[in-house]
Design a protein around this nucleic acid. Structure first.
Lengths: 216, 216, 216, 216
DNA sequence: GATGAATGAGGCTTCATTCAT
DNA sequence: CATGAATGAAGCCTCATTCAT
């Protein structure tokens, strides 16, 4: 499995930045809206372009084909999520397990939950085969960050840390998916976040090999 | 067959049971195979019929349209999974939390893991809007069974059970999805099952309000 | 609109073959007509299907794509031409150069000239890259047949036959193309045929190394 | 520049001659290159402009549409060929048939053969309906020049000279096309030229009505 | 019943041409 | 004037569904 993010799918051209950024944003936004309102099978290039307020031709100037558009949308979205998690991990290296775990879970859930509707829509799009590698690569990023984080905790050691990290990430990403597809209101989602954090904390406490304290 | 009434999509006819059962089975099997080999977008009615060894016309005798076929396949599959979980729950009512939890998790993971390729394929098909309700209904069945199970444990009480159950089911189903999409070999999946069980056990131990023992 | 002729109350003699043959013929005919009336660039699958009286879908059941259709049309046409020439060659092995030459030229020109409009149209289609190999292969067949024919003449020998044959075939096919694109009426074309025969006769007489007669 | 008036498609503007000539040349060159590398169907205005190093907009300043560009390219090319042949004819008026014939054939074949790749490419482009008239007009120029040449030979007379000329031109142009599409290396093409000259000489010797010599 | 050829709407993509900058 | 982004008609092809045999 490829581990690192694919740089791929640049827009075909890079015209005046301002305009093109706006256009690309509009297309991304339209993509999500159409996905939401019509479902993945009725997500057509024409509909996206129309919704974005540009012609198909224009859209094809930015994305060489539908697949590329799909990948670009997913890539940006997953990239943001992974960025948020990585930053949280970097910011909590060396902290106690419970703190680090909470930070990790919170970062992920918040990122996914910031705009539930979008997250929900993109889960559907992520089922397409041409995007599997992107999903896997993102999972790998999350996994790696978690491994690093868990390796840095002063109060516990995990063995094998890769496996423990896999459980944490699987459970968090998987459960969050269910939550996003199930709940819409802020409160419920916040509550989910706290609950999920508790679950991971519990699991990690259990899985930990307690590190000998310096004293005694 | 699932316990609860199926709301929709009966075959149009019910002739000689033996033959029609065989045909429907062949179609279901073909559906999954085509899904696996061609992906959800190239899953066409013609291809499924061809693979199943019947004509499209015949297939339309059993399923009024492609959507109905999709729903029937997903329904049967999810039904089996939910059946397995419900049975496990029924079989472990009144047992200690740890035992009950392990049984629940194992039942689910085993059901999903019995035929990984099929499970993996159907995750893709389940992204279609027309099966969302089915997925939700199944989730509800799992949730309900879990609530019942957790309410029956003699050694612990959960408050609110619904929420605790939600976490367990979310984590288990979500993480299993990740595992199914990530791992293929039996050993890894068995190991995943044990790990997941451990995670839930830990969470439930933590979440439990210890019940007063009979003595005192 | 469906093409199907009402079979009336006759014994169904012609099951599948008849219908598909008729359809393929109709498509070929339509192809040529559209080519004639719209030119190669406006030769679209839709237009051909429409003209043939079938739906695009039906056309795609017979030909997997436009290219395949193009090749099939050209292949059938060039095949007939090459067949005619080969037969003429076979039928004149061992005859004197002048006779053999005339037979060869006549056979080719007649084949190309039988239906000038079609020949003219197909010259346009033959410019497409995906058909070059077919054209070359046909040229090779003609060349080979000519080589055999010229090698069999009792009254002359050619050295190297391959080259002499190349000139004959190049001139005949090339000039015929010009004639077909230039003239339409039977008389002019017949006259062209005779003139071309004369030209080749003259060339071959000149190129020949006279064979020693048996006597004297 | 050709002798006879060009009927169509002047550039829209005629500004600083130097620059526009250079631009037009670049466009023509690009046209041929794109034709060669992408084939006639993928010969797009954008690609040509890009290859020529100008913007599409600029190209449309010189040629009102793609068709006009196509015609201009073909016109220039065919014009050069016809010019070469006409000049050869003018230069050999009154010479003996064999000499005149050789000059004619050589001039044509050399012109077509000077840059085989270009000639080959342009044969493809010439299949478009909108250049038929150009091709015919060029053929007419060649035919006329040949008629004049054959009418000037002191040692032979042809009857009807138009028809004889038609055969010669048809065979030469047609066979040359085959040669250009078949052979690439200089030697083979030179050999073809000599062979073709021989063929025409033979034909004309045969077709000639010998002119009474001055004596007797 | 069973069959599968036929249908045609609709999806993706290209490219000649225009026009605001 | 030159530029090249934007346009959208039109091309190719797929596939769910029907219906005559």
């Amino acid at each position: 499995m490829p581990v690192r993010p694919r740089p791929a799918l640049k827009p075909r051209k890079t015209p005046r930045q301002a305009r093109s950024t706006a256009t690309v944003d509009a297309i991304f936004e339209a993509f999500v809206q159409v996905l939401r309102s019509h479902g993945p099978r009725r997500l057509t290039t024409t509909r996206v372009a129309e919704r974005a307020g540009v012609s198909v031709g224009t859209m094809y100037q930015y994305f060489p084909n539908k697949q590329a558009l799909l990948r670009a949308v997913i890539e940006r979205y997953l990239g943001e999520v992974a960025d948020a998690v990585e930053e949280a991990c970097r910011g909590h290296m060396g902290r106690p397990v419970a703190v680090a775990s909470d930070a990790l879970v919170s970062a992920y859930v918040l990122a996914k939950t910031k705009d539930v509707e979008t997250s929900r829509a993109l889960y559907l799009a992520a089922a397409e085969v041409e995007v599997t590698e992107l999903v896997n690569a993102t999972f790998a990023r999350l996994h790696e960050a978690t491994v690093r984080l868990l390796s840095s905790t002063p109060d516990a050691r995990f063995e094998p840390v890769e496996e423990v990290a896999f459980f944490v990430i699987s459970a968090v990403t998987g459960a969050t998916r269910v939550a996003v597809e199930t709940k819409s209101d802020r409160d419920a989602l916040d509550q989910f976040r706290l609950g999920m954090a508790a679950m991971c904390r519990a699991f990690l406490r259990d899985a930990a090999i307690v590190r000998a304290g310096p004293a005694d």
